[in-house]
Nucleic acid binder design. Structure first.
Lengths: 138, 138
DNA sequence: AAAGTAGTTAGTAATGATTCCTATTTGTGA
DNA sequence: TCACAAATAGGAATCATTACTAACTACTTT
């Protein structure tokens, strides 16, 4: 875990480790601020800017995934294997979607002259929980 | 064109018409501010807030498409039939991608308990222009 | 055509997410 | 342990977007 950090970033600070490990095993796709609140319990003096800086670095290095959302803050995902996402229109939760990676799409785009690094698929609609309720969950 | 506006929005103002028609036939995926600059030539007193409000309304009503981008302002597309997008890592242009709509993905997600309204696929990489240059285009 | 009224606008302030700035601190290789 | 580049804390700044509100106007009803 923090060994992985060492491989790609010059220094392993306690803030960096805490931010990275706060995400491990979490499938709830927290926002930067939620991660900040969480890490602050261990490191009360940590700065929100530090959380942002490290989340950006970690995602640039491929140790975590940043998921931009259309109408709110980015969310972060410790799952680094390629997969897709579902955003609930009502409760705004993000779900991991486990369908096969559509590699043929990249090949098709390559044929059209683009040099593809990656692709993301985002589904929109109502999650199971919300589609069986009329209440405004959140 | 402005008849379409009338069908879905209570009033057809000159600002609304100008914003909508500024987008027609434009494949460059302009930002709200670019549209504002453009419309301002016809309506010098138009407000940026009016541009934002109408772009939001028009996209909510399905007359145009809003494309959120990970690291910058949203871009707008007059093409309303379902299609996908490519974002160039270097020049940040948005390209329309004409590959078949992947309807089977929605069906697969439906089987997994989600109620799908739509999906979007965004490809990342270098466009033709940028992959043949080393200069930092923009 | 005149009036009524609900929707819309302009201009600006406010918000929210994220990044920048800088003096200070700290991890790491020598 | 030393030296120094990298990272941090805290707050200011930035950028995109939305909220607010008094004035205005498109459209409906007389």
């Amino acid at each position: 875990m923090s060994m992985e950090i060492k491989q790609v970033l010059p220094r392993v600070t306690k803030q960096r480790k805490a931010i990275f490990s706060a995400l491990q095993g979490d499938a709830s796709h927290p926002t930067a601020d939620e991660i900040y609140q969480r890490v602050k319990q261990r490191l009360p003096h940590i700065s929100l800017a530090t959380v942002y800086r490290n989340l950006k670095l970690l995602s640039q290095e491929g140790l975590i995934l940043e998921i931009p959302t259309p109408d709110g803050p980015s969310r972060y995902d410790p799952q680094t294997h390629q997969h897709y996402h579902f955003l609930c229109d009502r409760c705004e939760r993000v779900y991991d979607v486990e369908i096969p990676v559509q590699g043929q799409l990249n090949r098709e785009l390559g044929r059209q002259g683009f040099s593809i690094r990656s692709h993301e698929i985002v589904f929109y609609g109502l999650c199971r929980r919300c589609s069986t309720r009329t209440s405004r969950a959140s």
